[in-house]
Design a protein around this nucleic acid. Structure first.
Lengths: 383, 383
DNA sequence: AAGTGGTTCTTGATCGGTACAGTAGCCGAG
DNA sequence: CTCGGCTACTGTACCGATCAAGAACCACTT
């Protein structure tokens, strides 16, 4: 079956590794701890501890001797868990991603955000733990995982996971959530951005605009009879953007047709876009909740033989990397997800610091600006 | 001010702890522990512990009383850290991403992989901790973060982080790494896949093929004089794919021009692609290490006014989601990154299980298949 | 010679829990 | 009336480390 045989090259050296695993087998039985080293060297446990954490507390000679012995016995340094217990901090911060964890890895905005968090946290030595909202099997990550603080990201309002975090009294930073006094929050000016997008279309002469939005209950798909009302229970960001769209369109006397997309993906978006664009008279433009949805709209237009922007303009939101990968490149509202991640990480480390010092924290509230980026997908209303 | 005031009554004995709690009161609101609840209810610490972990060990009435009291005092359940210490496991598994953490969030293959891991881990209640390879500031995540096992993903050979993990004796699963007896490994048949891609071009009549590859030292950019030799120190996956490309091309008597791309991104790839396609005679096809690079190649071709696939064929690798988002859609070698993630997560949970039972683990070695997916970006050699 | 100050190491308590081996009270069987 | 067997709790010993004091020793003052 393997028509290609084993990989060429390699010829690697396996030395050491095999020995390591042999040791590991035994090691799991008789663990090496500070005490083991202490006994071996003939000093107290504390001195060994100091050899690792406080070089200035013992003589260089002794330290060298201890480190050498530790190395010989295969001791890798103080156990992280035990250290965490006594220090009262685990050295990890959590990220709560409600819907599904996969989202955090797929959406361009989420990944930019997380990348920034990772970059910002790196130097501090904190690591990043992903908390899934629902731990089946009786385990609730938000309750049972050791973290020093949490970034609550893109999380629905009724999250029990979030409630656990609050109960635990952990330092929290709310990201893209409705600001809540008592917690630091970081977000972008969604409302303003949405207004910019809508105004752009209005300025181009569009008076009949379709809206593609997601973020509400997965149950409601398709045209929204009364968008404002139906959006009341939605995620904060969705509500904000929708409000921005509608406020401007209504003020301009334009007709708006809003459709809710079941899930935040381009396929689902294309489906709704087809419905919107199939109407007669056809809207001359589409305002989308995100670039992901806009990409779906682009695809739908293409399938229907409509030229963008000549027949229909499409405007996205986020300035996802995706926005410049599609053709035509998307006119969109730019948010700096990376900056958002940086700000969130800073806010959290700051909160961690004040919590540690016992200072009463004064939660920051960051709102990053949004701006319109005009590219190829929008143009004057036809006709 | 204190809207919740100190715990009512609480005739408990704070002896010994009182000094500490006096400080704690200021610092972080006197902590509530098992003992606090025990004192309040008038039972032993152990009984409270059982109320949370072993309902069958006490009467339902007592349990209800304890739980109610715990709730009243704001106790959220046993401290994860302390529990981890005594249980010997932290409930989190790590993912080691060497280069930069951001990579794990940007590349489609990495995200698919991680999404699968997350999905697979969810039900087990394990959470996911991202380990950056280099913790500046004296902190080395691979050494200092509490995890039960680690997925070593896309990691260069000389990783000290990886060495720490090995030293710690943690269960490891190597993903897309050179298989190492002693550790479970999961990967795909890169060599075979690369052969398929190359053979596809050969079958289409191409005899002059450019190769775009990354994964070597960032220093070496541009044309490789002696690809096979220069690739010796490269990442396993890069070596495998390059070998597959070259073996087939050489066997077919085709001319191969390989360029190394500094970083795994489309911009850098476009740059190299421009160089390759600027040659005279121009190669009639481009074999790319990944779809990301292929996307860059596509962009370069477009900029140069070359039609794909009429003037030049482009073949990618991975079947990244990106592959069907670009125009023309990419002919590529499909790997199932999601399945890879699933397999890796399973292998690790399995390793965790055997390690716990003390059974001598027998590391699995999974090699997932790869297959050619022909789309729009490849066609017969021109002329 | 006693006092001062600085290293270098040790002791005992503690972090918050869980495992395991009791112990008491109670019930039916012999 | 006593004993095995339950049920419902309790006591003690860790898990592997760190912290805050304290002790021993050394060189130097005064």
């Amino acid at each position: 079956m393997p028509d290609a045989g084993p990989a060429p090259a390699s010829g690697g050296r396996y030395a050491g590794r095999s020995a390591a695993s042999a040791v590991a087998t035994i090691a799991s039985v008789a663990r090496v701890t500070l005490q083991t080293i202490a006994d071996e060297v003939g000093v107290s446990r504390m001195t060994v501890s100091n050899a690792f954490n406080r070089p200035d507390q013992l003589s260089a000679a002794m330290r060298a001797k201890i480190l050498a012995t530790a190395d010989r016995l295969g001791y890798t340094g103080p156990d992280p868990t035990a250290r965490a217990l006594v220090r009262g901090s685990s050295g990890a911060i959590g990220v709560l991603l409600t819907d599904d964890l996969a989202y955090g890895f797929r959406d361009g905005v989420a990944t930019d955000f997380l990348a920034a968090v990772a970059d910002e946290l790196g130097p501090t030595g904190l690591s990043l733990t992903l908390l899934s909202s629902e731990g089946r099997d009786g385990v609730v990550p938000a309750r049972d995982v050791a973290v020093d603080g949490v970034l609550v990201f893109s999380c629905s309002l009724d999250s029990t996971a979030r409630d656990w975090l609050v109960k635990r009294g952990l330092p929290l930073v709310l990201v893209d959530q409705e600001p809540d006094p008592g917690f630091a929050s970081v977000g972008i000016d969604d409302y303003h951005g949405a207004r910019l997008a809508a105004q752009h279309l209005v300025d181009l002469g569009h008076r009949h605009v379709g809206i593609l939005i997601s973020g509400g209950s997965p149950g409601t798909v398709g045209r929204l009879a009364d968008p404002r009302r139906e959006a009341e229970g939605w995620k904060y960001v969705s509500r904000q953007r929708l409000a921005g769209f509608l406020d401007v369109l209504e003020a301009a006397g334009a007709e708006a047709v809003a459709h809710h997309v079941a899930e935040h993906g381009d396929h689902a978006a294309a489906e709704q876009a087809r419905e919107i664009l199939g109407a007669n008279p056809r809207p001359t433009a589409l305002l989308c909740y995100s670039d992901v949805l806009a990409a779906g709209a682009l695809r739908a237009a293409e399938d229907m033989g409509l030229a963008v922007p000549d027949d229909v303009s499409v405007v996205g939101f986020d300035d996802n990397p995706l926005a410049t990968r599609v053709r035509p490149e998307l006119t969109t509202v730019r948010q700096d997800a990376y900056a958002k991640g940086t700000a969130a990480a800073r806010a959290l480390t700051e909160a961690l610091r004040t919590a540690q010092d016992g200072e009463p924290a004064e939660p920051v509230e960051v709102v990053l600006p949004t701006e319109l980026v005009v590219r190829e997908s929008s143009g004057p209303a036809p006709g």
